[in-house]
Amino acid sequence: MTNINFQDLSDVIRLISDIKHKNILSSHDIALKTEAMLEALIAQGKWTSASELMQLIKQRIKCISQSLPMEATAINVMRHILKVIREEFEVASEKKGESQSLQYIVTGASSNVLDYSQSLSSLQAALLDHLSEYKTELETSAENIAAQASEHIHSSETILTFGTSKTVQRFLKAASKKRTFNVIVVEAAPLYLGHSLAANLAKSNIQTTVIPDSAVFAMMSRVNKVIIGTHTVLASGGLRASSGIHALALAAKHYSIPVMVLSHMYKFTPVYLGSNDHEAFNDCASPASLIPYSSGQVLNKAEVTNAVFDFVPPELVTLFITHQGGNSPSYVYRLLSELYHPDDYEI
């Protein structure tokens, strides 16, 4: 039993090992890879009914959440596909029209639960269609976000950003085609990823300044907008973002500067920050970038923690910009219910 299980999961293990070996780095690539994996899974058709297929996908989600607890993208993509399967199944079984009463919508009446174990011949084709649509959505997502740039960035404004993010870079470059503005890049110690973003922006003739993390508060008073990327968006509208962003968001709050977060839909996660499980929320990298290993004796006595993420509470975020447009943090719950089925929040 167990043997067969492991054999079947080889595709997801391959994905995990690719992520671990850093063969795929950006969350966008992970999303595309996951989508391709599911497409193959559905096309191969080792399943006969929707419930079986959903079971297969849930196994994969469990597998990833065990070996990569910090990985949200792949799980979110799969979670979304689960919702797609449910929807397509409803359409295919043609029950939708009859049962769509107000009472059903409000209470999600259990009297009318669908039997997903029924096998439907049209389901596979419908799913593959939907998936190719989803794939295009993923591919154009960054472009659609960038297209909104000129609505948010105005002439001769000063924009502050933190570290590096491909989406932010694209967004700023798109804006620079129509407007001239200044960008301040926070270098984001200890990885200093801000340097590469600053170099790339300067190449496309955007006026760019790099500042150390410690100068964020001092510079904030002359900034018009803060535009950042994030690792994940939590269900409350809070962020799990690179460490340093919480301090930045607090400084922005102090000066009442709007904080805009660019995010793809697959970064929205139906997970709350567990108050008693801070260690599971965060990830600790090697302390070597904070204090060199060669400092010797002091390391015998000190325990150095190099946290990778910050939790940014929702009240510090002004606006989320997705490919569908801008949404406030209080609207995240609604986006989540559009993206995922409530039964799939916890797997």
């Binding site: 600790c284 090697s286 302390p287 060199p292 290993y293 190099n306």
Partner: peptide, 30 residues
């Protein structure tokens, strides 16, 4: 090796102790 590169071998109890502690303190991340 410098920076976040880490290497070591357990060949007696003392190195067993130190490497255990360093693993626990994430020096061997990932």
């Amino acid at each position: 090796l410098r920076g976040s590169n880490y290497g070591g071998a357990i060949h007696n109890w003392r190195t067993y102790q130190s490497i255990s502690m360093e693993l626990k303190n994430k020096w061997v991340h990932p």
